[in-house]
Design a protein around this nucleic acid. Sequence first.
DNA 1: AACCATTCCGCACCACATTG
DNA 2: CAATGTGGTGCGGAATGGTT
Length: 213
Amino acid sequence: HTEEALKLYQAWFCKVRLCPMCNWRRSLKIAYHNKRIVETVNERENVRWLFLTLTVKNTDAESLSETISAMFKAWNRLVGYKAFKTSVRGYFRALEVTKNRDPESESFGTCHPHFHVLLCVPSSYFKKKEYYIKQDEWTSLWQKAMKLDYKPIVHIQKVKPKENLNELETYEKDFKKAMKEQNAILEVSKYPVKDTDVIKGNKVTDENVETVL
DNA sequence: AACCATTCCGCACCACATTG
DNA sequence: CAATGTGGTGCGGAATGGTT
């Protein structure tokens, strides 16, 4: 349904999901790719970019792989939904897994897999009712796709458009900034079900964010 | 009819191994 | 060494069937 010219490069980091070095090397390659794609698309099409983060509750190490494959399936459902198809013209999706390394924390050792998604939407996304998807709707779409019995933490924000297309780095900066902000939000966010599901900040998170773009 | 879930299949990509 | 083969994974379209 989406035009091929707008299809964003897609990748999932490292088979050994928790290996920071593999992720790091890989992400450098992908970052370079994405920068070029975003620039090219901006030259040809009048589009905006959104930054979406999809999360689930923390999981223990044993069920991590199940959770992740459930997330992939859920993602496939999500992109099939009407709302998504009409509003989104392309995307880049990255899986990130962080681990709570704070020995003081109740949720010490639990894993926190989540998707970071760069969405390409029409420039009229915010104006047209048939395009715009509110944060609540993103949340319920993700909840439905994941078949969750709780409200997942979902965050969406726009990447500031820069007129100046020559500067590749502007998007890099904006994207980094968006990631940092969203991770800051994740760090202080609680899931309503249990307080042991609080996501605590840790060094690994910051490093991963730093290296994704 | 519209929307969504599910399954199937071919394809692309990648890591790794084998071959010439 | 490069070229080629192979298995695993996810994508994406088609088809099917269920639900409203």
